[in-house]
Design a binder for these strands. Structure first.
Lengths: 110, 110
DNA sequence: ACACTTATTCTATTTTATAGAACAAGTATT
DNA sequence: AATACTTGTTCTATAAAATAGAATAAGTGT
């Protein structure tokens, strides 16, 4: 059972969403678009590297393939382990919010 | 905008769910029932106190009211600020998972 | 060579998570 | 009244994650 943090969850999901375009800076933009929050450079790379080290992501060096300005990028992709972690997270998240409608209503969350 | 961690999210929700029975040890059991994971003592009190300090929870001392064995308990309740934080978290969580069905299917998450 | 562009590495600090021993505050018992 | 018993909280220490951004790297264009 690999419990992941919310940051890790969102990064894994953005990698899935971006597919072939899952590069660190694109992920950063996607997160910004989604949450309205601009993560710092470290706020992206640090967890991406950690997820890779843990085996939830894998990464590929684009050095030779690309023809564009600037330093070559690294492309991320989710692994089967990463997918399992997402599934589990989603289930817990759903269970968490499985509260009686009365309670939700009372809080204005219904 | 008060972004909360997943631990904070689950604690806030369990406080809502438990209502009048939102005591630290009951919360701990509820979290265990929900996630299958037994949090340590500190794993419950530390974030509960932090949430209280931040104003997302308030707490009430049950010293005089209760007639039961053992030390008096403290009861927690969510504040309007706590509710707002939950709303926001839920929205982000929903936005996060708002991915094209194709992608979800491909990952076996559809 | 040198400037320019883009991306990543690296380091430091703050905040959270995690764990559990020690302690506190009651009730029951003798 | 003293002592055991029961339950809950406080406190302290360590590991992990979040946060920030300067420094550096690795290409392309001139």
């Amino acid at each position: 059972m690999t419990t992941i943090s919310r940051t890790e969850e969102i990064l894994l999901l953005m990698v899935c969403k971006l597919g072939d375009e899952a590069f660190a800076m694109q992920i950063r933009e996607e997160v910004k678009a989604l949450t309205g929050k601009l993560y710092s450079i470290g706020g992206i790379y640090v967890p991406l590297d950690r997820l890779t080290a843990k085996g939830l992501l894998k990464m590929e060096d684009m050095a030779s393939d690309e023809e564009r300005m600037g330093r070559p990028r690294r492309r991320f992709a989710i692994t089967s382990q990463g997918i399992m972690a997402l599934k589990e997270t989603r289930e817990i998240e759903q269970a968490m919010w499985d509260i009686s409608p009365d309670v939700l209503q009372k809080m204005g969350l219904g």
